[in-house]
Design a protein around this nucleic acid. Sequence first.
DNA 1: GCGTCCAGGTCTACC
DNA 2: GGTAGACCTGGACGC
Length: 314
Amino acid sequence: MKNNYSHHFFISVPSNFNFWRTVYSHGWCVLKPYSIDKKAQTFNRLFELESGKLVFVRIKAATPTKIKVTYEVKSGLTPVEKKNLTQKIKYILRVDDNFAEFYSVAKKKKDFLWVNKLKAGRMLRSPSVFEDLIKLICTTNCSWSLTEIMINNLTGKLGERFLTVDAEGNNLEVFSFPDPKTVASFDEKFMRQEIRAGYRSPYIIELAKKVAGGAIDLDSFKNSDLPTKDLFKKVTAIKGVGPYAAGNMLKLLGRYDYLGIDSWCRTKFSEIYKYGIKISDKTIEKRYKQFGKFRGLFFWMDVTRDWYRQKFPF
DNA sequence: GCGTCCAGGTCTACC
DNA sequence: GGTAGACCTGGACGC
């Protein structure tokens, strides 16, 4: 929109960082509020800052050690807001995560030499644990297309709206991910009828109410001192979050002790190692035991390996 | 057009 | 601690 302020800045990234490999690390990159503009080669999102200000961001790879952030906002950002935006971008892209130990393990494994070469391993996440958990709940026991429908509805019907223009100059409306307080203000009937969340509806509302009311501090999980096993227990204590969702939530918190196996991974693993025949989860767990605290990440590297051959895998 | 199955699982009741 | 059965929804598939 012509009334928006548009600016850009750069963020330095470590030498083992690969922008597109991080964006395409899993399906989150195509779930709203995230989007990918293949023509402009940007990864986009509407962020809501701590101040409440909405900022539409387009990120692209600039140099091997820098990413370029172009942002639009209705009024300029204060230095504090700009710092807040930078922190959020660095958090979602895992810019400051230390991958040295992971890469040193991968370097010693013949099957994973490609991981170092392609700088894979950083898994994209949401700015908040709340958003990651809601999205994970919405991936359970359904097709990916239904997950997209639920998340499209959550953002489009409950998120904040922002008007911008696309690469061709056409008007474009984008939405933020709704905060816990907003989600908590809707009832189960709305979640079922409008969001199409089905039986997940009470889980989503319960979690939103607990977060909004302060009964649970999800973002404290980001820097928790708890041993991984205890944190896993804490996450699975949330209604609707079982071993699959918790295992993957922990990966997004930088802890890779759990595999977070689902039907897609099970099928993929079997195609790679067992000629597509049905196998037990114990067979999968046996394969990754050797990777210790990184087993969940090596598992994910294995099942997504074919994505890394393409710039835009999906 | 209609019924069935299953997908990026989890919960509860019961043993 | 292990497991059968129930659970929303939408899309694919067979008939």
